[in-house]
Amino acid sequence: MADLLELIDISKTFDVRSGGRRATLSAVDHVSLTVRPGTTLGIVGESGCGKSTLARVIVGLHLADDGELVFDGKQMLTGKRRTPGELKQMQMVFQDPSSALNPRATISESIAFPLQVQGASKSVIAERVATVMRDVGLPAAYASRYPHQLSGGQRQRVNIARALALQPKLVVLDEAVSALDKSIQAQVLNLLSDLQDEYGLTYVFISHDLNVVRYLSDDVAVMYLGQVVEQGSAQQLYDEPKHPYTQLLLSSVPTLDPAESTRDEPVDTADSTEIPSPIDPPSGCRFRTRCPFATDLCAQVVPVPIQVGEGRTVACHLYTTP
Protein backbone atom coordinates (compact mmCIF):
# COMPACT_ATOMS: atom_id res chain seq x y z
CA MET A 1 0.00 0.00 0.00
CA ALA A 2 1.12 3.55 -0.70
CA ASP A 3 2.48 5.47 2.24
CA LEU A 4 0.12 7.88 3.95
CA LEU A 5 2.93 10.22 4.80
CA GLU A 6 6.29 10.61 3.19
CA LEU A 7 8.90 13.07 4.37
CA ILE A 8 11.64 13.80 1.88
CA ASP A 9 14.83 15.45 2.97
CA ILE A 10 13.32 17.85 5.49
CA SER A 11 15.53 20.43 7.15
CA LYS A 12 14.64 23.13 9.63
CA THR A 13 16.96 25.69 11.17
CA PHE A 14 16.39 28.48 13.66
CA ASP A 15 18.22 31.77 13.90
CA VAL A 16 19.56 32.19 17.40
CA ARG A 17 22.00 34.45 19.20
CA SER A 18 25.18 32.83 20.41
CA GLY A 19 27.66 34.87 22.43
CA GLY A 20 26.25 38.08 20.99
CA ARG A 21 26.56 36.81 17.42
CA ARG A 22 23.85 35.45 15.19
CA ALA A 23 24.08 31.73 14.68
CA THR A 24 22.13 28.99 13.00
CA LEU A 25 20.69 26.13 14.97
CA SER A 26 20.13 23.01 12.93
CA ALA A 27 17.10 21.44 14.61
CA VAL A 28 16.12 18.97 11.89
CA ASP A 29 18.65 17.99 9.26
CA HIS A 30 17.84 16.12 6.04
CA VAL A 31 15.22 13.85 7.52
CA SER A 32 13.42 11.37 5.29
CA LEU A 33 10.77 9.05 6.71
CA THR A 34 7.67 7.19 5.60
CA VAL A 35 4.55 6.15 7.49
CA ARG A 36 2.19 3.51 6.14
CA PRO A 37 -1.55 4.09 6.58
CA GLY A 38 -3.04 2.59 9.70
CA THR A 39 0.35 2.10 11.35
CA THR A 40 2.35 3.87 14.01
CA LEU A 41 5.76 5.37 13.54
CA GLY A 42 7.56 5.89 16.84
CA ILE A 43 10.23 8.58 17.13
CA VAL A 44 12.74 8.44 19.95
CA GLY A 45 15.87 10.37 20.78
CA GLU A 46 17.51 12.64 23.27
CA SER A 47 15.98 15.80 24.58
CA GLY A 48 16.56 18.57 22.05
CA CYS A 49 17.26 16.27 19.10
CA GLY A 50 14.44 17.78 17.05
CA LYS A 51 11.45 15.48 17.58
CA SER A 52 8.96 18.24 18.40
CA THR A 53 10.32 20.44 15.63
CA LEU A 54 9.83 17.63 13.13
CA ALA A 55 6.33 17.01 14.50
CA ARG A 56 5.46 20.67 14.01
CA VAL A 57 6.79 20.63 10.47
CA ILE A 58 4.64 17.58 9.71
CA VAL A 59 1.39 19.16 10.87
CA GLY A 60 2.27 22.52 9.31
CA LEU A 61 2.93 24.54 12.46
CA HIS A 62 6.52 25.21 11.42
CA LEU A 63 7.61 26.04 7.91
CA ALA A 64 10.61 23.95 6.97
CA ASP A 65 13.63 25.45 5.22
CA ASP A 66 13.80 22.63 2.81
CA GLY A 67 12.18 19.37 1.88
CA GLU A 68 8.92 17.91 0.68
CA LEU A 69 6.03 16.18 2.25
CA VAL A 70 3.59 13.86 0.51
CA PHE A 71 0.40 13.24 2.43
CA ASP A 72 -2.28 10.89 1.16
CA GLY A 73 -0.91 11.15 -2.36
CA LYS A 74 -0.82 14.95 -2.34
CA GLN A 75 2.40 16.84 -2.35
CA MET A 76 2.67 19.69 0.12
CA LEU A 77 5.50 22.14 0.24
CA THR A 78 6.81 22.15 3.77
CA GLY A 79 7.92 25.74 3.28
CA LYS A 80 4.39 27.01 2.55
CA ARG A 81 1.35 27.59 4.77
CA ARG A 82 -1.30 24.89 4.55
CA THR A 83 -4.96 25.38 3.70
CA PRO A 84 -7.55 24.75 6.48
CA GLY A 85 -8.62 21.59 4.66
CA GLU A 86 -5.07 20.27 4.69
CA LEU A 87 -4.58 21.21 8.33
CA LYS A 88 -7.72 19.37 9.41
CA GLN A 89 -6.43 15.97 8.34
CA MET A 90 -3.46 16.07 10.65
CA GLN A 91 -3.83 16.82 14.32
CA MET A 92 -1.22 17.15 17.00
CA VAL A 93 -1.26 16.55 20.72
CA PHE A 94 1.35 18.61 22.48
CA GLN A 95 3.94 17.99 25.11
CA ASP A 96 2.86 20.66 27.60
CA PRO A 97 -0.59 19.73 28.83
CA SER A 98 -1.72 23.11 30.11
CA SER A 99 -0.13 25.55 27.72
CA ALA A 100 -2.17 24.04 24.92
CA LEU A 101 -5.47 24.86 26.62
CA ASN A 102 -7.16 28.23 26.82
CA PRO A 103 -7.49 28.95 30.57
CA ARG A 104 -10.70 30.91 30.05
CA ALA A 105 -12.51 28.20 28.08
CA THR A 106 -14.37 25.33 29.71
CA ILE A 107 -13.32 21.81 28.87
CA SER A 108 -16.22 21.27 26.50
CA GLU A 109 -15.57 24.61 24.82
CA SER A 110 -11.94 23.65 24.28
CA ILE A 111 -12.86 20.33 22.73
CA ALA A 112 -15.61 21.93 20.65
CA PHE A 113 -13.39 24.69 19.28
CA PRO A 114 -11.84 22.85 16.29
CA LEU A 115 -15.29 21.50 15.39
CA GLN A 116 -16.71 25.02 15.42
CA VAL A 117 -13.92 26.25 13.21
CA GLN A 118 -14.88 23.55 10.72
CA GLY A 119 -18.50 24.71 10.88
CA ALA A 120 -20.14 21.67 12.50
CA SER A 121 -23.72 22.05 13.75
CA LYS A 122 -24.52 22.50 17.46
CA SER A 123 -25.98 19.03 17.86
CA VAL A 124 -23.07 17.35 16.07
CA ILE A 125 -20.64 19.25 18.28
CA ALA A 126 -22.45 18.30 21.49
CA GLU A 127 -22.54 14.65 20.52
CA ARG A 128 -18.92 14.52 19.38
CA VAL A 129 -17.70 16.28 22.55
CA ALA A 130 -19.57 13.81 24.73
CA THR A 131 -18.19 10.84 22.76
CA VAL A 132 -14.56 11.84 22.84
CA MET A 133 -14.74 12.79 26.52
CA ARG A 134 -16.04 9.32 27.25
CA ASP A 135 -13.38 7.80 24.96
CA VAL A 136 -10.53 9.37 26.89
CA GLY A 137 -12.05 8.63 30.28
CA LEU A 138 -13.12 12.10 31.39
CA PRO A 139 -16.28 12.17 33.54
CA ALA A 140 -19.09 14.13 31.86
CA ALA A 141 -19.25 16.40 34.91
CA TYR A 142 -15.92 17.93 33.87
CA ALA A 143 -17.43 19.46 30.72
CA SER A 144 -18.18 22.75 32.46
CA ARG A 145 -14.91 22.98 34.40
CA TYR A 146 -11.88 25.10 33.60
CA PRO A 147 -8.35 23.80 32.99
CA HIS A 148 -7.01 25.00 36.37
CA GLN A 149 -9.53 22.80 38.14
CA LEU A 150 -8.13 19.67 36.51
CA SER A 151 -5.05 17.71 37.38
CA GLY A 152 -2.18 17.54 34.88
CA GLY A 153 -3.20 14.16 33.59
CA GLN A 154 -6.83 15.15 33.25
CA ARG A 155 -5.77 18.15 31.19
CA GLN A 156 -3.78 16.00 28.81
CA ARG A 157 -6.80 13.81 28.26
CA VAL A 158 -8.67 16.95 27.20
CA ASN A 159 -5.97 17.59 24.62
CA ILE A 160 -6.22 14.09 23.24
CA ALA A 161 -10.00 14.38 23.10
CA ARG A 162 -9.70 17.64 21.19
CA ALA A 163 -7.35 16.15 18.60
CA LEU A 164 -9.66 13.18 18.08
CA ALA A 165 -12.77 15.35 17.75
CA LEU A 166 -12.10 16.11 14.08
CA GLN A 167 -11.52 12.47 13.16
CA PRO A 168 -8.22 13.23 11.44
CA LYS A 169 -6.30 10.71 9.30
CA LEU A 170 -3.01 11.33 11.04
CA VAL A 171 -2.42 12.17 14.66
CA VAL A 172 0.98 13.32 15.80
CA LEU A 173 1.33 12.56 19.49
CA ASP A 174 4.22 14.47 21.04
CA GLU A 175 4.84 13.04 24.51
CA ALA A 176 1.08 12.76 24.71
CA VAL A 177 1.04 10.04 27.36
CA SER A 178 4.08 11.13 29.37
CA ALA A 179 2.12 13.23 31.83
CA LEU A 180 -0.44 10.50 32.45
CA ASP A 181 -0.33 8.07 35.30
CA LYS A 182 0.37 4.49 34.33
CA SER A 183 -3.19 3.32 34.68
CA ILE A 184 -4.61 6.12 32.52
CA GLN A 185 -1.64 5.69 30.23
CA ALA A 186 -2.57 2.04 29.78
CA GLN A 187 -6.14 3.10 29.05
CA VAL A 188 -5.05 5.73 26.54
CA LEU A 189 -2.63 3.33 24.84
CA ASN A 190 -5.42 0.79 24.53
CA LEU A 191 -7.73 3.53 23.31
CA LEU A 192 -5.20 4.59 20.68
CA SER A 193 -4.90 0.99 19.45
CA ASP A 194 -8.67 0.58 19.34
CA LEU A 195 -9.18 3.83 17.44
CA GLN A 196 -6.48 2.78 15.04
CA ASP A 197 -8.17 -0.59 14.43
CA GLU A 198 -11.58 0.99 14.11
CA TYR A 199 -10.86 4.03 11.98
CA GLY A 200 -7.55 3.07 10.41
CA LEU A 201 -5.86 6.04 12.10
CA THR A 202 -2.20 6.63 11.50
CA TYR A 203 0.05 7.84 14.30
CA VAL A 204 3.39 9.48 14.66
CA PHE A 205 4.19 8.75 18.27
CA ILE A 206 6.95 10.60 20.10
CA SER A 207 7.89 9.45 23.55
CA HIS A 208 10.78 9.09 25.94
CA ASP A 209 9.31 5.87 27.28
CA LEU A 210 11.09 3.33 25.14
CA ASN A 211 8.97 0.42 26.36
CA VAL A 212 5.79 2.24 25.40
CA VAL A 213 7.19 3.19 21.99
CA ARG A 214 8.02 -0.41 21.28
CA TYR A 215 4.63 -1.58 22.40
CA LEU A 216 2.69 0.89 20.26
CA SER A 217 4.84 1.29 17.16
CA ASP A 218 5.14 -0.73 14.01
CA ASP A 219 8.23 1.17 12.94
CA VAL A 220 10.66 3.28 14.91
CA ALA A 221 13.03 6.08 13.93
CA VAL A 222 15.89 7.09 16.22
CA MET A 223 17.01 10.71 16.05
CA TYR A 224 20.24 12.27 17.23
CA LEU A 225 20.99 16.00 16.94
CA GLY A 226 18.45 16.59 14.19
CA GLN A 227 19.19 13.52 12.09
CA VAL A 228 17.64 10.10 11.80
CA VAL A 229 20.46 7.70 12.68
CA GLU A 230 18.51 4.46 12.48
CA GLN A 231 15.08 3.23 11.49
CA GLY A 232 13.33 -0.06 11.08
CA SER A 233 10.58 -2.24 12.42
CA ALA A 234 10.12 -1.83 16.15
CA GLN A 235 10.92 -5.42 16.85
CA GLN A 236 14.12 -5.60 14.81
CA LEU A 237 15.39 -2.28 16.05
CA TYR A 238 14.87 -3.12 19.71
CA ASP A 239 16.06 -6.69 19.43
CA GLU A 240 19.15 -5.81 17.49
CA PRO A 241 20.01 -2.12 17.70
CA LYS A 242 22.74 -1.32 15.19
CA HIS A 243 23.67 2.31 15.70
CA PRO A 244 25.87 2.90 18.76
CA TYR A 245 23.49 5.66 19.86
CA THR A 246 20.49 3.34 19.71
CA GLN A 247 22.47 0.85 21.77
CA LEU A 248 23.29 3.50 24.37
CA LEU A 249 19.68 4.66 24.50
CA LEU A 250 18.21 1.20 24.96
CA SER A 251 20.68 0.34 27.70
CA SER A 252 19.64 3.37 29.79
CA VAL A 253 16.03 2.29 30.43
CA PRO A 254 15.49 2.07 34.19
CA THR A 255 14.01 -1.12 35.57
CA LEU A 256 11.32 -1.38 38.21
CA ASP A 257 13.68 -3.09 40.61
CA PRO A 258 15.21 -0.85 43.31
CA ALA A 259 18.02 -3.40 43.67
CA GLU A 260 19.29 -2.41 40.24
CA SER A 261 19.48 1.28 41.04
CA THR A 262 22.60 3.09 39.86
CA ARG A 263 21.69 6.27 41.70
CA ASP A 264 24.80 6.37 43.82
CA GLU A 265 27.14 6.30 40.88
CA PRO A 266 28.92 9.63 40.97
CA VAL A 267 28.04 12.33 38.46
CA ASP A 268 31.00 14.27 37.32
CA THR A 269 29.63 17.73 38.02
CA ALA A 270 32.91 19.32 37.03
CA ASP A 271 32.78 17.56 33.69
CA SER A 272 33.33 20.33 31.19
CA THR A 273 33.50 18.31 28.00
CA GLU A 274 31.55 20.04 25.29
CA ILE A 275 28.03 18.71 25.07
CA PRO A 276 27.26 18.42 21.37
CA SER A 277 24.89 21.19 20.34
CA PRO A 278 22.78 21.76 17.23
CA ILE A 279 24.19 25.30 17.15
CA ASP A 280 27.59 23.97 16.23
CA PRO A 281 27.18 20.27 15.55
CA PRO A 282 30.27 18.05 15.36
CA SER A 283 31.70 17.54 11.88
CA GLY A 284 31.16 14.23 10.14
CA CYS A 285 28.98 11.97 12.26
CA ARG A 286 27.16 14.08 14.84
CA PHE A 287 27.33 11.29 17.41
CA ARG A 288 31.07 10.72 17.15
CA THR A 289 32.00 12.83 20.22
CA ARG A 290 30.15 10.34 22.41
CA CYS A 291 30.73 7.21 20.38
CA PRO A 292 33.01 4.51 21.79
CA PHE A 293 33.79 3.29 18.26
CA ALA A 294 34.61 6.65 16.64
CA THR A 295 37.52 6.78 14.19
CA ASP A 296 39.12 9.56 12.13
CA LEU A 297 36.72 8.80 9.31
CA CYS A 298 33.77 9.67 11.56
CA ALA A 299 35.09 13.21 12.05
CA GLN A 300 35.57 13.73 8.33
CA VAL A 301 32.69 12.13 6.52
CA VAL A 302 28.97 12.36 7.24
CA PRO A 303 27.62 8.80 7.26
CA VAL A 304 24.67 8.40 4.89
CA PRO A 305 21.81 6.08 5.80
CA ILE A 306 22.36 2.69 4.24
CA GLN A 307 19.97 -0.21 3.95
CA VAL A 308 20.78 -3.02 6.37
CA GLY A 309 17.73 -5.18 5.87
CA GLU A 310 14.10 -5.01 4.90
CA GLY A 311 12.92 -1.45 5.63
CA ARG A 312 15.87 -0.95 7.91
CA THR A 313 18.49 1.78 7.58
CA VAL A 314 21.36 2.93 9.71
CA ALA A 315 23.67 5.93 9.30
CA CYS A 316 26.97 4.80 10.77
CA HIS A 317 30.42 4.16 9.34
CA LEU A 318 30.62 0.86 11.20
CA TYR A 319 28.21 -0.43 8.58
CA THR A 320 29.53 1.43 5.55
CA THR A 321 33.16 0.42 5.79
CA PRO A 322 33.52 -3.27 5.03
Binding site: Q95, E175, H208, L249, S252, T262, V267, T269
Partner: peptide, 21 residues
Protein backbone atom coordinates in the same frame (compact mmCIF):
# COMPACT_ATOMS: atom_id res chain seq x y z
CA UNK B 1 6.54 17.33 40.81
CA UNK B 2 7.10 15.02 37.85
CA UNK B 3 10.54 16.50 37.16
CA UNK B 4 11.56 13.93 34.58
CA UNK B 5 8.53 13.48 32.30
CA UNK B 6 10.10 15.50 29.50
CA UNK B 7 13.53 13.93 29.80
CA UNK B 8 14.93 11.13 27.73
CA UNK B 9 16.35 8.14 29.54
CA UNK B 10 19.99 9.17 29.33
CA UNK B 11 19.39 12.70 30.60
CA UNK B 12 16.95 11.35 33.16
CA UNK B 13 19.58 9.01 34.55
CA UNK B 14 21.97 11.92 34.88
CA UNK B 15 19.38 14.12 36.58
CA UNK B 16 18.64 11.40 39.10
CA UNK B 17 22.31 11.03 39.95
CA UNK B 18 22.58 14.80 40.12
CA UNK B 19 19.69 14.93 42.58
CA UNK B 20 21.48 12.34 44.72
CA UNK B 21 24.73 14.21 44.59
Amino acid sequence: DEPTTALDVTVQARMMRLFRQ
